[in-house]
Amino acid sequence: SEEEIREAFRVFDKDGNGYISAADLRHVMTNLGEKLTDEEVDEMIREADIDGDGQVNYEDFVQMMTA
């Protein structure tokens, strides 16, 4: 549901600035027990970053979650 997606976005957007940065993503993945290299984190950001601004905004996140 849209509310679940919004809630998930809030979990990833640690600093609440409306964007998921590589640092935000790394933090959440580490908490989930996933040890990722910087390259892996950057690749995840690139794949999710639809508009190419280097971070994942809510619209990018929705597209990723509903793809």
Rank of each mutant, 00 (worst) to 15 (best):
S1I: 08
E2Y: 12
E2A: 14
E3N: 11
E3V: 08
E3C: 13
E4N: 07
E4P: 03
E4C: 14
E4D: 08
I5V: 07
R6H: 03
R6W: 07
E7Q: 12
E7F: 06
A8E: 03
A8M: 11
F9G: 00
F9S: 01
R10V: 03
R10L: 04
V11C: 08
V11E: 05
V11D: 03
F12G: 01
F12I: 03
D13P: 00
K14R: 12
K14Q: 08
D15Q: 11
D15S: 08
G16H: 07
G16N: 09
N17F: 07
N17W: 06
N17K: 09
G18F: 02
G18A: 01
I20E: 00
I20M: 04
A22M: 13
A22V: 15
A22I: 15
A22W: 11
D24P: 00
D24Y: 05
L25D: 00
L25I: 12
R26L: 06
R26T: 04
H27D: 06
V28E: 00
V28P: 00
M29S: 01
T30V: 11
N31E: 11
N31M: 15
L32C: 05
L32D: 01
G33P: 07
G33S: 12
E34L: 15
K35P: 11
L36V: 08
T37Y: 05
T37K: 06
T37N: 05
T37E: 03
T37H: 04
D38H: 09
D38I: 12
D38S: 11
D38N: 10
E39A: 12
E39D: 10
E40D: 07
E40P: 02
E40A: 11
E40L: 08
D42Q: 10
E43Y: 15
E43V: 12
E43M: 14
M44D: 01
M44P: 00
M44V: 04
I45P: 00
I45M: 13
I45C: 04
R46K: 13
E47T: 14
E47D: 11
A48T: 06
D49N: 14
D49E: 12
D49M: 13
I50P: 10
I50F: 07
I50Q: 10
D51C: 10
G52A: 13
G52I: 10
D53G: 07
D53M: 13
D53T: 13
D53K: 13
G54H: 05
G54S: 05
G54W: 04
Q55I: 09
Q55E: 06
Q55G: 06
V56F: 08
V56Q: 00
V56H: 02
N57P: 09
E59C: 05
E59P: 02
F61Y: 05
F61R: 00
F61A: 02
V62N: 01
V62Y: 06
M64N: 05
M64P: 01
M65Q: 02
A67K: 15
